[in-house]
């Protein structure tokens, strides 16, 4: 058997730095489903810093349930052989701070639960990853009953819900800092 590991304190994170673009992006990384395919939706937005400037060197990942509320556990999340929906995607931001995904709207994973995308954010200048959720707009009663949202004031609650654009897409901006700072999450067992 392998040697015992004495120390089970979590390894510290560090910034993704400026040079990840030739390493982490992959073909079709932000296309969980083909663009424009039936049932697809465009999830998009921009990442801003505390001065309101776009962040051109951020990376977002989303993790989500499918349209029936099942969280996929299918192998092949980088190559998606056979076109399986894997429920995970990765988008770097462009020079204007913009990210986008082509995906499906997740259904709730439980009775009466609110549907959301889980998001992790990395950026040059950001020393550790951040988590947030992007809730789907629409069902106000369900959103009001969500445990996380219920604990927030109106403005911050509103900021966690994607905006439905006239073209049907979902818009969600990430503000790393400032008056409109995104609600970032700490899960049990996370420090800092």
């Amino acid at each position: 058997m392998p040697e015992t590991v004495r120390d089970l304190t979590a390894t510290p994170g560090q910034t993704i730095g400026p040079f990840f673009h030739y390493a982490l992006p992959f073909d079709l990384d932000r296309e969980l489903v083909p663009i424009g395919s039936p049932g697809s939706v465009r999830l998009h937005g921009r990442v801003y810093d505390g001065a309101g400037q776009p962040v051109p060197d951020a990376l977002l990942e989303i993790r989500q349930a499918d349209g029936s509320g099942d969280v996929p556990r299918v192998e092949g999340s980088l190559r998606r052989p056979g076109g399986d929906f894997t429920g995970w995607g990765r988008s770097s931001t462009d020079r204007t701070g913009r990210y986008w995904f082509s995906t499906v709207e997740p259904a709730p994973t439980g009775e009466g639960a609110a549907a959301f995308f889980t998001v992790t954010v990395f950026a040059r200048g950001l020393l550790n990853r951040l988590f947030t959720r992007i809730y789907l707009p629409g069902d106000d009663a369900v959103l009001a009953a969500d445990r996380l949202l219920a604990g927030l004031d109106d403005e911050r609650r509103h900021s966690m819900v994607a905006e439905r654009e006239p073209d049907g897409s979902l818009r969600f901006d990430v503000h790393l800092q400032g008056d409109r700072e995104t609600v970032f999450l700490r899960y049990p067992g996370h420090e800092g």
Binding site: F117, G125, L126, L176, Q177, E181, L185
Partner: peptide
């Protein structure tokens, strides 16, 4: 300019 200044919000993980 790239770090949050508000406390991180506790969340119990669910779903995805």
């Amino acid at each position: 300019l790239r770090h949050p200044t508000k406390d991180l919000r506790h969340a119990d993980p669910e779903g995805a």
